[in-house]
């Protein structure tokens, strides 16, 4: 298991400073959400943790008892399934063997679609296959880059439930980037608001699971939303 430690992390593209002075430590097995307007730098932060981008300044560390590199997987906004592989083989891409791939496919409830092509599925089903692919390798850290943004409201709720359930089961460290505050409050233990490249708010969400929309829920929702809109 790993903690993620960011110290004074900054990222610039030429003169354009996207992130600056990010100090953040994310505990292993936790569920953290990063919210903000589009272009606030939240996706860049995720890509830095995924090592798809280099930091311009500061350090990124994975700390823990183990000395090996953490296994990091991403669920992207688009499914990024390979259209030339059937669903099972798409999942097997992220897995060591077919057994684990099948198990993973069962967890997302699409075992009967194993030999179909991804293009024969709906958008929500494709994202479930993408989730199964990410889980098949038993990741230490799972990064979600607005994976539900393109789905309809009902499918999104279903997916949130599925993600929450699987996270409770497998206890991987989750980091969700989203612009949907309700989604963030629904899923995360901790919500971080980023605006103009800086952390503006770091809020613990102290609500029992499974979460319902009660007064406390709306309190958090309002607080975060005000920070985004007012800040």
């Amino acid at each position: 298991m790993f903690n993620i430690e960011l110290k004074d992390v900054g990222k610039s593209y030429g003169d354009n400073e996207v992130l600056r002075g990010i100090d953040l430590s994310i505990e292993q097995g936790s569920f953290t959400a990063i919210v903000g307007r589009s272009g606030c730098g939240k996706s860049t932060l995720l890509r830095i943790i995924a090592k798809l981008e280099e930091v311009s300044k500061g350090t990124l560390l994975f700390t823990g008892e183990e000395t090996k590199e953490p296994k990091i997987r991403i669920m992207f906004q688009d499914d990024r399934l390979l259209p030339w592989k059937n669903n099972l083989n798409n999942i097997a891409l992220g897995s060591v063997n077919q057994m684990l791939a099948k198990e993973s496919l069962e967890k997302v409830g699409l075992i009967d679609k194993q030999s179909d092509w991804p293009d024969q599925l709906s958008g929500g089903q494709k994202q479930r296959i993408a989730l199964a692919r990410a889980l098949a390798s038993n990741p230490d850290i799972l990064l979600f880059d607005e994976p539900l943004g393109a789905l309809d409201a009902l499918t999104r709720m279903e997916m949130q439930k599925l993600i929450e359930g699987l996270w409770e089961q497998q206890q991987f460290t989750s980091l969700l980037v989203t612009h949907d505050v309700t989604e963030a409050v629904h899923l995360a233990d901790r919500v971080i608001v980023i605006d103009k490249g800086v952390i503006q708010l770091d809020e613990e969400i102290d609500l029992p699971r499974p979460r319902v929309r009660n007064e406390k829920f709306t309190y958090y929702e309002k607080k975060i939303l005000n920070q985004i809109l007012g800040g």
């Binding site: 995924a50 798809l52 997987r73 991403i74 992207f76 390979l82 891409l93």
Partner: peptide
Amino acid sequence: RKLIEMGSVYGLSRWRLFTNI
């Protein structure tokens, strides 16, 4: 390019990236 990026996040070697993607 997005599929290639996915492949590298999933830790595919250069050879597997070539044959699979």
